[in-house]
């Protein structure tokens, strides 16, 4: 999980925590005890929100901890990453479109692949900045690779920044919103699996990241990284 995502998760915990503390303070001072049931319901709802977030973090850390490489179902990773990001940031105004075609599984570390897509999906939501937007996640199988696209119709990346976005510590975010390591980590993980990542972006139109992971050849000597 990137530092920026951790920061967002902390923020998401602080809000219901404020609700618990605030409503408990009110309940302690309330002389009309018949009102306390409603205050306790508010406290319970806030605690349940925190519980959901912690549950998400727990399953994430369980996956990330495992170092072994397994056959990774990219569609499951995309679904899980989307769920994780939705817990952390406000995504209610964004329409998510999934265009999944049958693709091979890839042999990889589940946590690392999830980190790739958590980062890309977080960036996409942030680029749409809580406005009415559209996130498209698509997959398809190519001759010797699988392709995943993450597209948004957010603010886009200025042309002059496009060749720097994968550099470590490069960021256009406000202080405290991210250290500029997210896309660098993404790029390093993809390179580790001999994959590629490309970006197309237009300011005011949106951004598309295209990731390709190589898959196993059909016995003609191609390198093996994916299996059906």
């Amino acid at each position: 999980m990137s530092p920026a995502t951790i920061f967002d998760v902390i923020h998401e915990i602080k809000v219901p925590l404020s609700g618990i503390i605030g409503m408990a303070e009110v309940a302690l001072e309330e002389e009309d005890t018949s009102k306390n049931k409603s205050y306790l319901m508010d406290i319970l709802n806030c605690a349940q929100k925190i519980s959901e977030i912690v549950g998400g973090l727990r399953s994430y850390s369980r996956i990330a901890k495992k170092e072994e490489q397994i056959l990774v179902d990219i569609h499951k990773v995309l679904e899980d990453s989307l769920k994780m990001v939705r817990l952390a940031i406000n995504t209610t105004s964004v329409e998510v479109i999934k265009r999944f075609q049958p693709v091979e599984k890839i042999e990889a570390n589940m946590g690392e692949i999830q980190e790739v897509f958590t980062n890309l999906i977080t960036n996409a939501f942030q680029a749409m900045n809580g406005k009415k937007g559209r996130l498209i996640l698509s997959t398809r199988s190519l001759k010797d690779s699988i392709e995943v696209k993450v597209s948004d119709n957010g603010i886009g990346i200025p042309q002059k920044h496009l060749d720097k976005i994968f550099d470590p510590y490069f960021t256009t975010k406000n202080p405290g919103e991210g250290m500029g390591l997210g896309l660098n980590i993404v790029s390093r993980i993809i390179t580790k699996y001999k994959g590629t990542i490309d970006v197309e972006s237009k300011e005011g139109i949106g951004t598309t990241f295209t990731i390709k992971f190589p898959i196993k050849g059909d016995g003609n000597g191609k390198e093996s990284f994916g299996r059906r």
């Binding site: 404020s18 609700g19 605030g22 409503m23 009110v26 508010d42 806030c46 406000n90």
Partner: peptide, 13 residues
């Protein structure tokens, strides 16, 4: 505030 519960306890105070 977009959080109903935050608005609620602030309103009560």
């Amino acid at each position: 505030d977009d959080e109903q519960v935050i608005r609620k306890f602030l309103r009560i105070h």
